[in-house]
Simulated scan of single mutants.
Amino acid sequence: MTLATEAADFFQYADGVNPQGNAGSTGFDGAFDAYGDGAWQKMAKVTQAGDAYPLTYEASDFLGKFSFTFTLVDGKNGTWSITNTDLLNDLTLDLVFAMHVGGGSGAWLFDDQFIASGQTLQGTWVQNMVNGRQQRVTDFSNLTFFGRDLVPSIPIVDVPEPATFATLALGFGLMGLARRRRQT
């Protein structure tokens, strides 16, 4: 699991848990406690409709701050993205990509993920999970994005140094002087 070419910070497998059902975040919540303290909120979900590949999904959710894409290529791999649709604030959050496959689910945590205002981060995924009995689990069933600890920040804009203003003023003054000499 990658996002912006970086691997997830942590992975948790939960046998018998479907994040889209009543279980929600219980399959990974305790395992990710060390990475934050807020309650997990469902951000978006993808439910497979038969075996139609490729499956493409787009959603916009989580306080109206993000949009998502998800592409399922063949049941075992695909791509995804998250876009910060807030054009005024950079955003940082704990982000979980929780995929249900067979009789369990895997959850990948991207801790303190920074997404600049208007930025889209691309990711890839490959389903290689093995359950507690060391058996390879089946193809993709569904996916839920979870988020918590959302922290907005206003992008920092560089302010010119005072010396820059002085140089600019000197340049304009010299241009004015040169123009005046040409006129006389």
Rank of each mutant, 00 (worst) to 15 (best):
R180T: 04
F172C: 06
F62S: 07
E161T: 04
D61W: 04
R136D: 04
L88T: 14
S141G: 08
T164Y: 03
G21T: 09
G132D: 08
V159S: 00
F70Y: 14
T164C: 00
D111E: 15
T164P: 00
M99V: 15
R179T: 03
D61S: 14
G16C: 11
I154W: 00
M1Q: 02
M99D: 08
H100R: 13
D15M: 10
T120Y: 13
G118A: 14
R148K: 03
H100G: 12
G123Q: 04
T56Q: 11
T71Q: 09
L87G: 08
I156R: 00
N77V: 05
D111N: 15
G16Q: 10
T124R: 08
A107H: 12
L87M: 13
L93N: 08
A107I: 14
F145C: 02
W40A: 02
D37N: 10
D37L: 06
W125K: 04
Q48G: 07
L55T: 09
A7L: 10
I82F: 06
L170F: 03
N22S: 11
I154E: 06
F114H: 14
Y13G: 03
T167Q: 05
S153I: 07
L177P: 01
F66D: 03
A163S: 05
S153M: 06
L91W: 13
T69A: 09
A98E: 09
Q127H: 15
Q134D: 07
P54T: 12
I156A: 02
A107W: 11
F114P: 12
S153F: 03
W108F: 15
L63V: 07
L121V: 11
Q113A: 13
S25I: 04
L55N: 05
A59S: 13
A39Y: 04
F62H: 04
L3Y: 01
R136E: 12
R180S: 06
V73G: 01
L91T: 11
F165R: 00
Q41V: 14
A7D: 11
G30H: 03
D112N: 15
N131E: 13
A169I: 10
A44T: 05
L91P: 05
V151N: 00
A34D: 05
D112K: 15
A44M: 05
A44K: 01
S141D: 12
F165V: 05
K42D: 05
Q113C: 13
T79H: 08
D112R: 13
M99L: 15
A178R: 02
L3H: 01
M1D: 06
W108R: 01
S153C: 01
Q12E: 13
V137P: 02
M43Q: 04
T56I: 14
T5E: 12
H100P: 10
D51Y: 08
A169G: 02
G64W: 07
G75I: 12
F172A: 04
Q119M: 15
G30E: 10
E58W: 08
D94W: 14
G132A: 13
L93E: 12
S60V: 12
G21C: 05
A39T: 10
G24M: 10
A52H: 06
V159G: 00
F70Q: 02
V96T: 11
G38H: 06
G132I: 07
T2S: 09
G27W: 02
L174D: 00
T85F: 09
